[in-house]
Amino acid sequence: MGIAVICGSSRKGGNTEALVDLLIDGLDADKICLHDYHIESVQDYRHVEAWPFYPDDDYRELINKVLENDIVVFATPIYWFGMSGRMKYFIDRWSQTLIEMGRDQFKQQMSAKTAYVIAVGDDEPHIKGLPLIQQFQYIFDFMGMAFGGYIIGKGNRPGAVLNDSAALFSANELRQKLMETTKREME
């Protein structure tokens, strides 16, 4: 059982990544920081007759990493009450993968995964971040993925999330749960 963590922050070492680092400390996790990759925006080819050519970017490499794991953590700052543009680009490209791999094959592969969300914001994130959590819930429902839970942290300036005791507690609880799960899988 593997864990893929997709960090959607545009800032290296920001609050979202700090919370992710606490979560995966001691876990064998594949941390994917989207700011280190080039992902083009989605092009809608659903209704064209000729087979489309998709961008030559890093998306396929990343989606293959995700498909190799059983648990996927989506970590994003709360930007304008939603996910980051980098995260949105990545998820939007699933539309192309649904066509390219075949709807049933990709959805079946994703439906075997359990998903978690980490979101960090500053302006009442525990209230204003809930529509983002709901958006992820709809995405996971569409793909047939189990939604294991979420953590919302509060922070703006670098390192501020480390003062959010509730988020730190939740990250520790989830880390313990993931450690126990991976330990059981290895036995």
Rank of each mutant, 00 (worst) to 15 (best):
E61W: 07
I152Q: 02
N156S: 12
G144Q: 04
L178F: 00
S95C: 15
G144N: 09
S41E: 06
M83N: 02
E100C: 06
M1P: 00
G144T: 05
L98P: 12
F81Y: 15
K154H: 12
F136D: 11
G14E: 04
L130V: 11
E100W: 05
R46N: 09
E124F: 12
K183V: 00
H35E: 09
D104H: 13
I151M: 02
G102L: 04
P125T: 06
G8Y: 02
K154L: 06
I99Y: 13
L174H: 04
F90L: 02
W80Q: 05
D164V: 04
F81R: 06
R103V: 06
N64F: 07
F90Q: 02
D123Y: 14
Y150R: 01
Q105A: 11
F81G: 01
G149Y: 07
W51D: 04
K12D: 11
P77K: 07
I3Q: 03
I6A: 08
P125S: 09
Y150N: 15
N64E: 15
F142M: 12
K113I: 08
G2N: 14
N156H: 13
F81L: 07
G153L: 04
I99D: 13
Q109K: 12
S41D: 10
D92F: 14
G148Q: 13
M179C: 02
S10Y: 15
A119E: 03
Y138E: 13
M145S: 01
W94A: 11
E68T: 15
Q96P: 10
